[in-house]
Amino acid sequence: MGAAPASRDVTSYGLGLAAPLALFFLAFFVAPLLQLLWLSLHNDTAGLHWGLGQYLHFLTDPFSLGVLGSTLLLGAEVTAVCLVLGFPIAWLYQRVAPKLQTIIILIVLLPLLTSVVVRTFAWIVILGRQGIINATLQSLGIIDTPLKLLYTQFGVVIALAQVQMPLMTLPLITALGRIDPNLDDASCSLGAGSWRTFFRVVLPLSLPGVIAGCTLTYAAAITAFITQSLVGGGQMLFMPMYLYQQASTLQNWPFAAAISIIFLLAVLAVVSVFTTLGRLSRGYGGA
């Protein structure tokens, strides 16, 4: 990158500066993924016989399909909970004083940076038989025997929603901040009520943020291995743990590779659907 000719644009740098990272990614990110794909296309562990056996096994096995289905469903449930809880936070953020805004951001940010194991552990304490919820309900006399909250779908969804909430809330705060506040007033002065204004003006205009938040939350929720396994326990199996069991405990690498590829494709499909929606919504928001 020696002395650049004077005629060159001084405000930009050559693409060559990206070469080290590009090479690093080629060697340690792209190559491993290609190797994963290669192995998944073999019927034996040694990788000698080509074939679609691993994929056929997965796609004809009701158990495997069930794991995939429950993982995708889990992501949808977590994303919905995050959206319903996260949107009011972003809304509140826009109408409080700057000092409170910083506090809200820091509250939202903290879980993002706190260790996932710690956050999940907290939910074990809250949802356990002697946990805070059961203790409160019992002392109020509402229930006699502790409710089973840990190791249930409800427990996994609520714990994952808390763990992933920042990923939903931060893009929403950004998106709501970009909406011209005059539009809100205009809608109200034209006679629309607050609810109507919210659903007809604010929500549609914030769609890019909603979609960005949903993409991040969904991708994070279905891959959140630690929270899924600790709060879900042994009875509930989702794709990441299924993959890990096949690879690590059973040493069935080709099948684990096929699970990985199917899982990767599922995540990519969801992300690209959201991205397409995002592109459409930007056109909508700008119109």
């Binding site: 009011p88 509250i107 809250i126 808390q162 109200c188 009520g193």
Partner: peptide, 27 residues
């Protein structure tokens, strides 16, 4: 009508913020 909207949004936001912060405090 406006009051009900603000009330619901603020309440949900506060509940959501409590859900976010509570686990760390409990631990």
């Amino acid at each position: 009508e406006a009051f009900s909207f603000e009330l619901v949004m603020t309440l949900v936001a506060i509940i959501a913020l409590i859900i976010i912060i509570a686990p760390s405090l409990v631990v």
